[in-house]
């Protein structure tokens, strides 16, 4: 592993110069409508990269393509040295053990207890003894503050708690990379702050690489080593948080300050409204 760069050390980050994800000229279209229109991106080991942008800018599509859940129309994703979309199922399964994903909803199995949900990847992918798995489940649940909820089922806990359990499960195999899809959405500010601290600690203390997709600017600035802004399927800004905060780019300024007026339009329809109604 390469040592952290000077810039990274100054930020308290464990970012190295080793590229762990490379996104090259990525194009994705749904029903002929382009969602990603040529995204190029590099993620370095140990950094927390925030991908931000408004609803419909393509950030969730980018995340889903980066984890192999969506196939691009053009371009490629190289993840931990593997061309993701050229892998067969076995290759993809092997790679999936090395990264974790926190989905927006938590994506838990409703028929399993909280503890069983967290234990699932450990039972499926390791030869660890059941006694060790039980201790690990408690450790992972403690990380997200829910150790006493192990025997409940998802329907017995709140949406925010389900999300935290989803994070505990994403951490089960000690992944090298964690993808977070809107980690703070649906959480109260205190819990959202706890999750932000955990993201930062995993990166700064353990060197975990994090990719955080969010439109919540407070959280984005708290966790980011580097930020990328997507707009209309393209990267329109990239840099450390302080550069993004100080930018004169009206597109970025409107987004990070949540201003209603500016170059980002509310309406996305390209057809004329009156003509559409009268057609």
């Amino acid at each position: 592993m390469t040592p952290p760069s000077t810039e990274a050390r100054a930020r308290g980050s464990r970012r190295t110069d080793e590229v762990v994800i490379e996104v090259k000229d990525l194009h994705v279209a749904f029903d002929g409508r382009p969602v990603l229109a040529g995204v190029d991106l590099r993620v370095y080991r140990g950094e927390t990269l925030v991908i931000m942008g408004g609803s419909g800018c393509g950030k969730s599509t980018l995340l889903r393509t980066m984890i192999g859940a969506l196939r691009p129309n053009r371009g490629k994703v190289v993840l931990l040295g593997k061309d993701l979309h050229a892998l067969d199922e076995d290759g993809l399964d092997a790679l999936r053990k090395r990264f974790g994903i926190l989905f927006q909803s938590g994506a838990l199995y409703n028929s399993m207890t909280v503890g069983e949900n967290v234990a699932l990847p450990l039972r499926e992918h390791t030869s660890l003894d059941e006694a060790i798995i039980r201790i690990m489940v408690k450790m992972k649940l403690e990380l997200v503050g829910l150790r006493d909820f192990e025997s409940l089922v998802p329907s017995q806990i709140s949406g925010g708690m389900r999300k935290r359990v989803g994070l505990a499960r994403a951490l089960a195999l000690d992944p090298e990379i964690i993808f977070y899809d809107e980690p703070g959405a649906g959480l109260d500010p205190v819990v959202a702050g706890v999750i932000d601290k955990l993201i930062a600690d995993l990166s700064r203390k353990l060197g975990v690489t994090s990719i955080v997709v969010t439109h919540e600017m407070g959280s984005a600035f708290r966790v980011a080593d580097r930020m990328v802004m997507l707009y209309e399927g393209r990267v329109v800004a990239e840099g450390p948080p302080e550069a993004i905060r100080a930018t004169a780019d009206p597109l970025v300024r409107q987004f990070i300050h949540g201003e209603p007026d500016g170059p980002i339009p509310l309406r996305r329809s390209k057809t004329d409204y009156a003509e559409d109604l009268l057609a």
């Binding site: 390791t126 060790i132 201790i135």
Partner: peptide
């Protein structure tokens, strides 16, 4: 050390 190692020491 990863969490499986830690859990083993805790046991």
């Amino acid at each position: 050390i990863d969490s499986s190692g830690i859990a083993t020491i805790v046991e």
